[in-house]
Structure formats: structure tokens, C-alpha cells
Design a protein around this nucleic acid. Structure first.
Length: 790
DNA sequence: GCGCCCCCAATACCG
DNA sequence: ACCGGTATTGGGGGCGCG
């Protein structure tokens, strides 16, 4: 029978008879959850002959050296190696278990130059080979009746032929469960040996909820109920906060301690750690929202509550995780935490809903199942896309380089800003400059002409300054990939224009075009990443060089037109706005460079200090756009950031320096009086390495050491929130994690001198205000009077 | 021993 | 485990001073 189904998850199995199986966990059009098993795929690798060895000799050599029982087929095929067409041997093997060993053996043969694609996972090979994608629809001819497989409760069908991809932008209704688990640990990280689970809350998309509570000091019943819920509700997606960082490892360890089988997969096994440190629940998608929020620089402190507030799916009180233990023991605390767990699960669901379309599209684009796609870093996302493109083009996938000598190269150009406040400034930028340069000059690893190759410059594009050459023809992998991406994005956007934003398809298309944009923008960075399969320094270096040449030309054009240039960074120019001239500028840039520039922003007023990459602009609606300054950073306390914004807002809207100064002085006064909440004084910094590897005692490191001493597990990547308390000695010696600082008096002098004043002064010094003016408590001095600007 | 200067480790930002 | 360019803070060592 024929089925149309949407691929949720995939894994590979080697059957008892040693045959290879690809398991596709899918949702049929009618909503039924099924497992489709394809036994028709054999994993493979390619073998390239050594120079002087014929393909026939190679074939004979490989055939004689590989056990016949392991071998499915040997084929001579034409493939491209960095653009050059060559005959290679395609070796298909009986299953994934023997790939590694056979590939290693074959690589050592005399006739062999190299073995390729043995390092590409079987499931990924399968997607490339069939053209199907996770999070997309397929059509498959399957056996009429299901087979039964031990431990699997949904029908499993054997595929009778290779499934085919089906174009359909709709995502089926997924069964989603959002979780939140509370472990009331006392001033420490939860430890599976010592700490019991307090509450597990779950909600579905319809708002139905399940809450399991540890009533009498035993978390076994609660964990059993949880396992039962997953098995009976049978979600496609389990979404939570911190799943990959601690939740699954904690639940697995805890289950072991108390003798519960955490067999929550669709195949009854417990979650297991997989690629990118991510946990896999077979047949389901395990999404950790933390991985999503990690990609959003707007959310500075990565807690669920913060993220939920940012995405507007939170209201009301926050109970800090550090105090779960305390609250649990307090009177009425248990009820509070039970409610809180529900509330958090709701927030988890709220955030999931915002991202679900995007994740599905990303997954489909890069051919990783949704949960891998979320957990993968940008480099691997780009690589997923490039690999499937390469396969379509017949281009062999290079191995990941092992030891690469690392050399940096020159990047984008940043102009010196004109300090001061400027009225009506337009920010013009090149739309997707690097992707367009890559397409324009065909910059790619497979079009690169090495220095020692003699070839006419006529057939090459030659990069300015650095002189790297790239063939004009044929189109390279990067150009083809980006062309496809940008064309797809354009057509989606065209299509969206004809849709109303209320159309259910609108959000999905929006997500799709966003997913595409992210990948396209990361290709340049990918090219310069030493760990990339397609790493090639000249490629990245040439893109940057062409970028500098491009912005320089644009700068020249602006000057020729008499446009005043205030600033510029990499692909943008800040110009004093003059509608006619700006229009002419756009025309000339397109004429001379063949690239489009557009007005990205129009500031009513914008303030620059002498520093690059830091400015604050006032938009048409009087909102502020803070870029690079303290108020845009996560490592300044809230009080300082807020003050800076307020001072900037007063200055840019009223021009009243005195008013801005007074406002800053008020804040200083308020701090002196101890009227700021400790929350407004917490400074956050991320640990970048294990504590013992630090060479200097930075404040956040000392604070982290104090956390560790108190029983917290402190790891690289953790964000440390600390305050500076009164006392003698260096700043770091007085840095305490805010959760451990109770009772200790805050060092208001530190906050005034090193937070409030610098943040306010950064803005005010532009209009000539001096530090002393902020420190004079009440009296308005003559100096103040004279520094007031006209 | 103290303050000052300079260097640099560390972090987070911009595009 | 994406790039380079940039600003900024605080630690820490060296130096001169008395």
C-alpha cells in the first residue's frame, strides 16, 4: 500500500541477519504514527585510486581485500574531487557496523589514494541518496500489513521500494509535551545521589496538564508515573529547558539509583547521549529550548524565566532555581513550587510554539532530525546543507581536516566614526554582502586555483590585495548552494506577499526564509573555520578582501556625491540623510558594483563616541537603538544599563544636558541610599573554561569558586551572576554569587564608580560632561551651567 | 610598601 | 567547535619614590 508520511526521526539498525535497516519514525497523513523500515539501503564509501593506478586495478585490489560477505557491490562511478571529474570506486557494504573497519583496511591498500565519505553517518547518506529529508513529507510503497517488533507500540511497515520526497510545506499536527522538573536542592546543583525529584509538570499544546509531586520523601512513584505518562500519551516531541545540559543525565542517573526503568523512547530504551552532546529519545524529538535561546543574543542571561519574559510568555513572580530547596522546606513552599513547575511548563510550551515552524524548516533544509538541527552549531548546520548539495552535484565530500596549521587573515573594514550627535542619518547596507560576493566572483573551494598553477587571468576572478584566483566557470559548490538558497528565499518572500499574515501558512514560510537566511550568512564563516570539511583559508580571505574593496568603492561614491559619511562597518555606511543624493548613491553603487544597497535604518538622531562599533540612535518613533554600548551588553548590571538608556533617551529627545546629568545624579543618590534591589546590581559573566585553567583571578572566577565550594557543579559555559560587596582588598576578592551574598552589604562605591558613572558618562562625555559633575551631590554648580549645550 | 603605568587575560559585542 | 575587528575592565607585574 502507498503511504504519505512526515519524517520525525531516524535511526539505523543492523538486523540480526546482519542486514542494514533504516528506521524512519513518521506521521502519516491521517495522523497515525508509524515506523517505516527500509532494508534496501547499503551504506557506502568511495575509493580514489593512487596516481598511475587504473580504476580496474583498484577494483580488483579492493575486491580481493574485502570479505565477500561484507560486500554488497562495487561500482565504478564518475565523481568530482574539488571540481575535477575523476573515476572512483563506490563500495557498498552490508551494514554500518563494518564500514569503519573495512574503510580503514582499504585505505591502507597500495592502489588507494584515499577513502571518502566513510565518515558520513549512514542515516545522512540515506537522506542524500534518496533525496528525502527529516521534517519533510515522503511517499512510500509499504507492505500491506505491519510487522511487530518487540518493545515498539506503533505499527511498523517494511518499505517495498525506496521512499520518494514529496513537496508539501505543511507540518502535521505534532503531539508535543512540555516538561518542567524541579529538584529542590539546597544551595547546590542537583545531585542524583543526594537529591530527590520534587515535582514533574507536563503540559500539552491544548493546555491539558499533568503534575506529579513528591509527597512523602520518595520520588520513585513520581518517576514511575512520569514514565507511564510518556508511554501512554506517546508524544512526538518532548520539549524542556536544560534537557541536554542536565535534565536527562540527572533523570537517567536518578532512575538508576532508585530502580526505575526510564524507557521512554518509542523503542523502549532510555534516552542516550548522541551527537553534539545532545540526548536522543528514539522515535521522538527531544528539544532543549536552551539550545534555541543560545542562538538569540537578545536573551542575555539564559534562564527559562528570562527567555520567557523576552518572548512575552511569562508573567508574575520568579523563583530562583538556587532557592528551590529553601522554598520547598518553607511552609506552603511545596504548593508554590508545584504551581511554579506548571507555570514553567507553560512557558516552555509557549516558547516551543514560537520556534516549532522554524525548527522544522531548519531540519528539513540541513537534513538533520529536528533535535540534532537545534543542538548543532552553525558550522555543522552549514555543513549539513553543503553535504547534501555536494551530493546532488556529484562532488565528493571531503574528510574533516585533522591537524591544520591555523593562520588568521584580514577581515572586514571598520571606519572611524565622527564623534558627536548627528541629525538624520541613514544606514545604508549591502544586502547579504558576503553571500553575494561569493556568487559574483564564484569563490569556492572547488574553483580555487592554487598559486602554483599556471593559468590565464582571463578565465579567473582575481581577488584584490590578496591575489587569490577563482575560476569563472563552472559554478562552484558555494555559488550553487547560495544561489539555490537565495532564490528559494526570494520566491518564499514573493509568495508571502500574496498571503495575509493571518494565513496559517504565513508563519511557516516566514520560518523557512529565516532558516535559509541563517545558513546563507554563515557560509563565509564556515569557509574560514579550520574544522570545516570545506575549509580553505584563501576562500575566506578572498571574500573579506572583496568585501573591503566593495565598501571602499561605495565610500568613494558617497564622497563624490558630497554625502557626509559618519561611520561604516564591513558592509554598511552611515550617511547624513539627503533623499535625492542617497537615491543617486544607490543607483551608482548598483551600476558600478552590481550589488544592491538599501536604507536599512533611518535615525532621527544618532550619537557616536570615539569608539567603533558603539553608538545609540533615536528612531522615528522615539525608541532607542543601542548598539555595542554598555546597555547592549550582558556583563553590566541592570542599574547601569538602565541609567545609560535613560540618559541617552533624555539627551537625544530633549537635548537637555542638565536634565540628563540630573537624572544620572538621581540614580547615584538612589544607589547610595541602598534603594536598588540586589537584582539590579548583579553582574553576569560566562565561564569559558574550567576554573583551574584561569591565569588571573577575575571577579566571576572568584565568585564561581565560591559556588563550587558551596556544592555547585560549575562548568564552562555557565553564567555566573555576582555582586561586589563592601570590604578591603581587590574587586575579585569581594565578588560573591548573588545567591550566596545575603546579608553582606553591597559596595555602593564600586557600583557608583565602576558601573553607574562609566555607563552614564559614556553618553554624557560626548556633550562635554565631566565625571566630577556627576559626583557633585546636590549643588548645581556654575560649571554645570556653562556646559549646557545650546 | 604604595601608587602609577603598562600589558594582557578575559569577555562580549558588531557585522 | 563560524570569521575577524573592536572596546573595555580588572589583575598583575614592574618601576620609581621615599
Amino acid at each position: 500500500m502507498k503511504v504519505k508520511a512526515w519524517i520525525l526521526d531516524v535511526n539505523q539498525e543492523v538486523a540480526r541477519d546482519q542486514s542494514q535497516e533504516i528506521w524512519l519514525w513518521a506521521i502519516k497523513e491521517d495522523g497515525e504514527r508509524v515506523l517505516l523500515i527500509d532494508k534496501g539501503f547499503a551504506p557506502f564509501f568511495y575509493v580514489i585510486p593512487k596516481e598511475g593506478v587504473s580504476i580496474e586495478e583498484l577494483e580488483a585490489s579492493v575486491k580481493s581485500q574485502v570479505r565477500a560477505s561484507d560486500l554488497v557491490s562495487l561500482k565504478v562511478v564518475e565523481k568530482k574531487r574539488l571540481g575535477k571529474l575523476t573515476k572512483v570506486l563506490r563500495v557498498e557494504l552490508r551494514n554500518d557496523d563494518v564500514i569503519e573497519q573495512v574503510a580503514k583496511h582499504v585505505a591502507k591498500l597500495y592502489a588507494v589514494k584515499e577513502v571518502l565519505e566513510d565518515d558520513v553517518r549512514a542515516t545522512f547518506q540515506y537522506f542524500m541518496h534518496t533525496g528525502i529529508s527529516p521534517s519533510s513529507w515522503i511517499e512510500a510503497e509499504v507492505a500491506d500489513s505491519p510487522i511487530s517488533i518487540e518493545g515498539i507500540n506503533i505499527p511498523a511497515y517494511l518499505a517495498m521500494a525506496t521512499p520518494k520526497p514529496v513537496e508539501d510545506g505543511n507540518v502535521p499536527k505534532l503531539r508535543v509535551l512540555a516538561l518542567h522538573v524541579i529538584v529542590p536542592a539546597f544551595m547546590s546543583s542537583p545531585s542524583p545521589d543526594r537529591d530527590q525529584i520534587g515535582v514533574i509538570a507536563a503540559v500539552n499544546e491544548e493546555g491539558e496538564r499533568w503534575v506529579f509531586v513528591n509527597e512523602r520523601g520518595d520520588d520513585k512513584p513520581l518517576l514511575l508515573e512520569f514514565v507511564k505518562l510518556i508511554q501512554s500519551y506517546d508524544p512526538d516531541v518532548v520539549v524542556s529547558w536544560g534537557a541536554n545540559k542536565w535534565l536527562w543525565s540527572f533523570l537517567i542517573e536518578r532512575s538508576k539509583r532508585i530502580g526505575v526503568k526510564l524507557d521512554i523512547g518509542r523503542q523502549k530504551v532510555e534516552p542516550h547521549q548522541s551527537l553534539y552532546g545532545h540526548f536522543s529519545i528514539i522515535g521522538r524529538i527531544n528539544v532543549d529550548l536552551l539550545d534555541i535561546v543560545a542562538d538569540d543574543p537578545e536573551v542575555k542571561v539564559k534562564t527559562l524565566e528570562n527567555a520567557a519574559k523576552h518572548y512575552k510568555v511569562w508573567d508574575g513572580e520568579v523563583i530562583d532555581q538556587a532557592f528551590y530547596g529553601e522554598v520547598w522546606e518553607s511552609s506552603g513552599g511545596k504548593e508554590r513550587l508545584v504551581n511554579y513547575a506548571s507555570k514553567c511548563a507553560n512557558a516552555v510550551m509557549g516558547i516551543w510554539k514560537l520556534f516549532s515552524h522554524y525548527l522544522a524548516q531548519l531540519s528539513s533544509l540541513i537534513k538533520y532530525p529536528m533535535d540534532y538541527a537545534v543542538a548543532a552549531s552553525p558550522g555543522f548546520r552549514v555543513e549539513g546543507y553543503l553535504m547534501s548539495r555536494a551530493h546532488q552535484l556529484g562532488e565528493l565530500i571531503p574528510k574533516r581536516p585533522e591537524v591544520v596549521s591555523f593562520e588568521t587573515y584580514r577581515g572586514g573594514m571598520v571606519l572611524e566614526p565622527k564623534p558627536g550627535i548627528h541629525n538624520y542619518v541613514a544606514v545604508l547596507d549591502f544586502a547579504a554582502m558576503y553571500p553575494h560576493l561569493i556568487m559574483k566572483y564564484n569563490i569556492s573551494p572547488d574553483t580555487y586555483v592554487p598559486e602554483d598553477v599556471a593559468i590565464s587571468d582571463q578565465v579567473c576572478y582575481v581577488a584584490p590585495e590578496v591575489g587569490h584566483r577563482f575560476l569563472k566557470e563552472p559554478d562552484g559548490l558555494y555559488k550553487l548552494s547560495l544561489t539555490a538558497l537565495l532564490e528559494a528565499r526570494d520566491s518564499i518572500r514573493q509568495f508571502m506577499k500574496r498571503l495575509s499574515p493571518d494565513d496559517p501558512r504565513y508563519a511557516a514560510y516566514e520560518a523557512q526564509q529565516k532558516a535559509i537566511k541563517v545558513i546563507a550568512n554563515a557560509v563565509y564563516g564556515y569557509a574560514g573555520w579550520v574544522g570545516a570539511r570545506w575549509y580553505l583559508k584563501p576562500v575566506a580571505e578572498a571574500v573579506a578582501a572583496w568585501g573591503r574593496a566593495t565598501i571602499s568603492t561605495a565610500l568613494k561614491i558617497a564622497k563624490e556625491l558630497g554625502l557626509e559619511v559618519i561611520y561604516g562597518d564591513t558592509d554598511s555606511l552611515f550617511l547624513r540623510y539627503d533623499q535625492a543624493k542617497v537615491e543617486e548613491f544607490k543607483r551608482r553603487v548598483f551600476e558600478q558594483l552590481g550589488l544592491e544597497v538599501k536604507v536599512d535604518k533611518l535615525y532621527k538622531r544618532v550619537l557616536f563616541t570615539e569608539a567603533k562599533k558603539r553608538y545609540v540612535g533615536l528612531m522615528e518613533d522615539d525608541s532607542l537603538d543601542v548598539v555595542g554600548l554598555e546597555a547592549a551588553r550582558g556583563d553590566w548590571c541592570e542599574a547601569a544599563k538602565q541609567l545609560q538608556e535613560e540618559v541617552a533617551h533624555i539627551l537625544l529627545t530633549t537635548d537637555n544636558v542638565q536634565k540628563a546629568v540630573e537624572h544620572a545624579k538621581q540614580a547615584i543618590k538612589k544607589l547610595k541610599a541602598g534603594k536598588f534591589s540586589i537584582k539590579d546590581l548583579v553582574i553576569w559573566k560566562t565561564l569559558s573554561k574550567p576554573l583551574d585553567e584561569y591565569k588571573v583571578s577575575a571577579p566571576h572566577v572568584t565568585a564561581a569558586l565560591r559556588l563550587k565550594k558551596a556544592g555547585w557543579d560549575v562548568k564552562p559555559g555557565d553564567q555566573i551572576g555576582f555582586v561586589i560587596v563592601k570590604g578591603s582588598g581587590k574587586v575579585h576578592e569581594r565578588a560573591y554569587p548573588y545567591a550566596l551574598a545575603h546579608g553582606q552589604p553591597i559596595d555602593s562605591d564600586y557600583y557608583i564608580e565602576n558601573q553607574l558613572i562609566p555607563a552614564a558618562l559614556r553618553i554624557l562625555e560626548v556633550v562635554g560632561v565631566k565625571k566630577e559633575q556627576l559626583k557633585q551631590a546636590e549643588v548645581v554648580s556654575l560649571l554645570d551651567f556653562f556646559t549646557q549645550q545650546p
